[in-house]
């Protein structure tokens, strides 16, 4: 049953053209949380001198993962849209590592969802980045 939900959510994410282009893959969906992987790709480098992935790609990962966490919430509506998203970059991701984002929708009202997320590359306990966002909850009328 849980595996089934993850499969459906993974399919949903891979059907988003930009998520597909970035190679994002959803690996887990919970009851108000989600985990998405961003594999290393040289096309996503932000500075040739260092080979580090651009912050913009991390933003895209965080935005997608936060949106997935909102849709995983039992009180979610039919769709969601980002109102705002803040990303703090703790350190550069190590080149050639996959970046994994975990997002949690920790509160939902009738129209707004509150989300936080963390991104790791598996090389340190310090996250690569953290995110805080609010999302509009669109309900069927």
């Amino acid at each position: 049953m849980i595996q089934n939900r993850t499969d459906i959510a993974a399919q949903f994410i891979s059907a988003l053209p930009h998520a597909h282009a970035l190679g994002l893959s959803l690996t887990r969906i919970g009851t108000a949380d989600a985990e998405i992987h961003l594999p290393y790709d040289e096309a996503l480098i932000g500075d040739l001198e260092t080979g580090v992935i651009h912050g913009g790609a991390v933003s895209a990962l965080m935005d997608t993962c936060c949106g997935a966490a909102v849709m995983a919430h039992p009180d979610a509506g039919v769709a969601t849209a980002t109102i705002d998203l803040r990303i703090d970059y703790m350190r550069a991701a190590v080149p050639k590592t996959t970046i994994v984002a975990i997002a949690e929708c920790f509160h939902m009202t009738g129209s707004v969802a509150f989300v936080r997320a963390t991104a790791h590359d598996g090389t340190s306990k310090t996250p690569v980045a953290t995110a805080t966002g609010t999302f509009a909850v669109e309900r069927a009328t």
Partner: peptide, 15 residues
């Protein structure tokens, strides 16, 4: 990001 609306992905906009 949203195939139904053909809206730009929020991540692409942020980037």
């Amino acid at each position: 990001g949203n195939p139904a609306l053909q809206a730009l992905h929020g991540g692409a906009t942020a980037a």
